[in-house]
Design a binder for these strands. Sequence first.
DNA 1: ATCAAAATCACAAGAATAATGTTATAATTT
DNA 2: AAATTATAACATTATTCTTGTGATTTTGAT
Lengths: 258, 258
Amino acid sequence: MKREERRQEIINLLVESRAVDLDDIAARFGVSKMTIHRDLDDLERAGVLRKVRGGATIDPGTRFESDFRFRELQEADVKRALAETAADLVEPGMTVMINDGSMASVLGDVLAEKKPVTIITNNAAIMERLKGLSGVTLIGLGGIYSAKFNAYFGIVTEEALSRLRADIAFISTPAASGRLAYHMDEAVVRTKRAMMTSSRRTCLLINSRRFGHTALHVLADLAEFDTVISDKALPHDTSADLADGKTAVRIANKEKTT
Amino acid sequence: MKREERRQEIINLLVESRAVDLDDIAARFGVSKMTIHRDLDDLERAGVLRKVRGGATIDPGTRFESDFRFRELQEADVKRALAETAADLVEPGMTVMINDGSMASVLGDVLAEKKPVTIITNNAAIMERLKGLSGVTLIGLGGIYSAKFNAYFGIVTEEALSRLRADIAFISTPAASGRLAYHMDEAVVRTKRAMMTSSRRTCLLINSRRFGHTALHVLADLAEFDTVISDKALPHDTSADLADGKTAVRIANKEKTT
DNA sequence: ATCAAAATCACAAGAATAATGTTATAATTT
DNA sequence: AAATTATAACATTATTCTTGTGATTTTGAT
């Protein structure tokens, strides 16, 4: 087991139990305490946890957000499955918008296979990965860089979107409840909405675990999307509400990951 | 001598003689032919040279441009000197525009020291380096990504610039002759000009070796700039023409690099 | 077509870097 | 003050990068 795996595991433990004991994990992974100290130090610097005497806890500064940060680092399999399913909606030659978030970054990687394709995004991770790939026309959205979301936002971003038009926009969300999707940041919501407005079709990507959460701002009514993709069946109330609308629901299958 | 030094040297040799012999450079650096093969393969992939039987030549596809590409990889000292001099024009708190080009990337690094500072750029290298630095507000300009210049261009970029305003714009150019600066690409020219329009003051950065070259499009009259920075005195005709105008000329000093 | 030079490939040796462990010392907690 | 935990500095061990070697294939000239 190598360094990064071990750290990922520490995060997973933390998500489950909200706190970990240093001696305990050192024994569990069969490494010295010093190594765990270094792991925790680095993870603390990265902002995912807080060291306390004898171990670590999840950073109590923010509530939902910390939860969010954790999930960002996990569930790569779910993200991959959602991305693969989303990619089915894209044909070579299309113009696609992708928003911020790590889920979205994975989608960027997957869509690079569909070349030729034009990708419009404010997601810095995607820009870095896709720039220079032949067959991929990359249109970066400018704006004020946000380290928190590793993406660009603001008036500049929204103005740029108002001058562009895509075949489909892929929007991801960290929270949904009932028929509404939520986000904690206003600037992010505005950018996502601008993408929806500038696209012929829209698709929401949501991890099934995010259902039942809310956040400060309403992002959209799920019925506004042409397609909603998740990794498990939607909660009953949600799916019932959606049943008679025009919104298609697709469930991604983790197993048959290509 | 390590790998990168050796490769840099190979490039230098190539700039001088337009072609190198594989056996020759293997002997010169005291390494095996296989190592040189690998160097040349990588440099070829990076687009700086073309392998031919027995050695390599500069990529004959483009003329001026290939020359340009080479210089990009060299003269780090000149770039540094120009950047340091340019940085003197910036006070903490200012908003600065920086254009594409490797010269400009160096300037980005140097300006990061002047925090707090707001940096507006279409230069992908700068975005990657500066994003997330505390004290630096990064405003990325969107647009269509150009692998050739590693920057973003087009209507989106220009529109974004039209909504922004900076204290000073740093413009670099690969060619100047008489009192005019030139560039081979129209989209790049438009972006640079948009930056000039959106800034209170403007500053041109030019490597002295670039004087005497021209290119397809006129970028600007040197007299349009408030300041012109170079690493050696300007050619006589140029400086005479500039003498009675309001343009200040500054010569960067390689030695006193901070 | 044939031969010699050059290029490529696959693997091994060596160098450089990163990760981990050890021990000693300092800081906290009780 | 004693015990526990954290930090720091250095030693050791893994891992990764770089280079070299020799076998094999390709190329270009005759």
